[in-house]
Design a binder for these strands. Structure first.
Length: 479
RNA sequence: GGCGGCAUAGCCAAGUGGUAAGGCAGAGCUCUGCAAAAGCUCCAUCCCCAGUUCAAAUCUGGGUGCCGCCUCCA
């Protein structure tokens, strides 16, 4: 089954056709002038999972994500704090990367910055002027929207309607109200670069066109970003790119839904945000990823204080199962054996789960469905775990199960806790073994009172004891 | 005013023509010294109205409600 994706450009789900062995991806990054907030986590986690899934499907991926480090807000912040614009943007770009690391998001292959690509920007503007899509007014260069017939094709807007809806004050220098700045003439005290039009700096949208063209060329595979970027940012990107190069920009446009904070869209400018670091100080990254991936990427997502508590229990079940599998398989060698009976049934369940997962992801990266496939598998796994002994056939299929769960939930979705989160360190393990041995002895002698005291006191210390048919087990209590 | 999206059980959430995935919460049961974990069973006819169709949550038209974008925003 091939991959199908919803393409904003055509407004329908399309089959993804590959043009080479490497899939090229450009995702709009951030303007680094404030701490990285929860809203940024959504595209990051989603694309992280998409990339990992594509590799699982044996594609290669090349991922570029920009930093728009020249911007009015950065300059304003720099002035306010008595720093240079570059100091401010570097600081927050670094904060962004740290937040991504903390989320378990794999880094992009490239993080180009506008400040390092002003030449490319200038070249593209020159091409636009040469192609009669842009004009220079006293050191400002604007894109001439009326000159580009395809304007509005991504956001499905008609120019006449857009102009009628203009609510902001129109720069009198513009020929048409919808024209937008490619190059801004610098004012005193602002960072400025030399250009054929005098000292100035790039406008907002041009950097993405120039840098995606430089690193990915024309008609690359995926262009992603939040749905709030469809208009005007991505619409303008297309106009600039195609106006300058006469070639199409990206083949598939994917837009993720907004993450809303307490029913309101989270955004930097409204001061309505929670930083990623705040959330990760309280909750494991894997839980947060589970929450994001429980909903399809195009849907809106609500976040509030108790949200992660609500999804915690289901997430624990997945990890609980992985922990049990790990405990069973650990230190044992799985010899390939002929399977039959309940082992055969389990292997069939593994295959089914893998296929369901794959189909779900192939269908517009439906992580919600993919997670459902994992829950289905969980039931089979837990049932089997209750029934089986530690015979060679059992170890063999259990290690396969463990691997599959690690691959799907761990490697691709990134929602499995790592082993050291599950197990204690150093002395803890032998000590716990000792305690459990003693307690088992007590239980054998029916000294239940003492056994219960032990269990209760360990619970106070954050250690949970579970008595199972396979003996007593312990784990670190969550929360 | 324009463009787009959404409305599915108490909550979260899949599902684009064939008679409602999954998770949480809840009820009952099994296992168990007890507890925990786990398993099993139960729990919706899909905002309203009118159409198309043998058949619609899924298509069409109308209505209501919510949200996003049109200004910086992932």
């Amino acid at each position: 089954m091939s991959i199908r994706v919803y393409n904003t450009l055509t407004r329908k789900k399309e089959e993804f056709t590959e043009t080479g062995s490497t899939i090229s991806i450009y995702v709009c990054g951030v303007t680094p002038y404030a701490h990285t907030h929860l809203g940024h986590a959504r595209p990051s986690v989603v694309w992280d999972v998409i990339k990992k899934f594509l590799r699982y499907q044996e594609y290669q991926v090349f991922h570029v994500q920009n930093f728009t480090d020249i911007d009015d807000k950065i300059i304003a912040k720099a002035n306010q704090e008595g720093k240079t614009a570059l100091e401010v943007s570097n600081y927050y770009a670094n904060d962004y990367l740290e937040s991504m690391d903390a989320l378990g998001v794999e880094r992009a292959d490239l993080y180009p910055k506008v400040s390092e690509h002003v030449n490319e920007v200038i070249e593209m503007i020159e091409a636009l002027i040469a192609n009669k899509h842009a004009y220079d007014v006293d050191g400002n260069v604007f894109f001439d929207v009326l000159s580009f017939p395809g304007y509005g094709k991504l956001s499905n807007q008609r120019l006449a309607e857009l102009q009628a809806g203009t609510r902001f004050e129109v720069d009198p220098l513009k020929r048409s109200p919808m024209d937008f700045a490619l190059w801004k003439k610098s004012k005193p005290g602002e960072p400025a670069w030399d250009s054929p039009w005098g000292q100035g700096r790039p406008g907002w949208h041009i950097e993405c066109s120039a840098m995606s063209y430089k690193y990915l060329g024309a008609a690359f595979d995926f262009h992603g970003g939040g749905s709030d970027l469809i208009f005007p940012h991505h619409e303008n990107e297309i106009a600039q790119f195609e106006g300058a190069t006469c070639e199409p920009l990206a083949r598939y446009w994917l837009h993720n839904g907004m993450l809303n904070l307490r029913e309101e869209k989270m955004s930097k400018s409204q001061g309505n945000f929670v930083t990623i670091k705040d959330v990760l100080a309280k909750y494991p990254k894997e839980l947060f990823r589970f929450y994001i991936l429980s909903t399809h990427y195009r849907s809106e997502l609500e976040y509030h204080d108790t949200k992660l508590e609500e999804v915690n229990r289901g997430w624990q079940r997945i990890n609980e199962c992985a922990r049990k599998l790990s405990a069973r398989v650990q230190g044992k060698t799985a010899e390939p054996v002929e399977v039959s009976g309940q082992e055969e049934r389990l292997v069939a369940a593994l295959e089914k789960a893998e296929a369901q997962f794959r189909d779900s992801m192939n269908d517009d990266f439906n992580t919600a469905l993919a997670i459902a496939a994992i829950f289905d598998l969980l039931r089979e796994l837990n049932g089997y775990l209750d029934r089986t002994d530690d015979g060679p056939a059992s170890i063999y299929v259990l290690s396969q199960a463990y691997q599959l769960l690690q691959t799907l939930a761990g490697d691709i979705l990134g929602i499995l806790k790592s082993d050291d989160q599950n197990l204690g360190l150093g002395l803890t393990e032998p000590l716990m073994e000792l305690l459990l041995d003693l307690r088992t002895q007590l239980r054998t002698e029916k000294q239940y009172q003492l056994a219960d005291i032990m269990r209760n006191r360990l619970l106070v210390l954050g250690i949970v004891i579970e008595d199972t048919p396979q003996g007593s087990q312990w784990k670190i209590k969550d929360e």
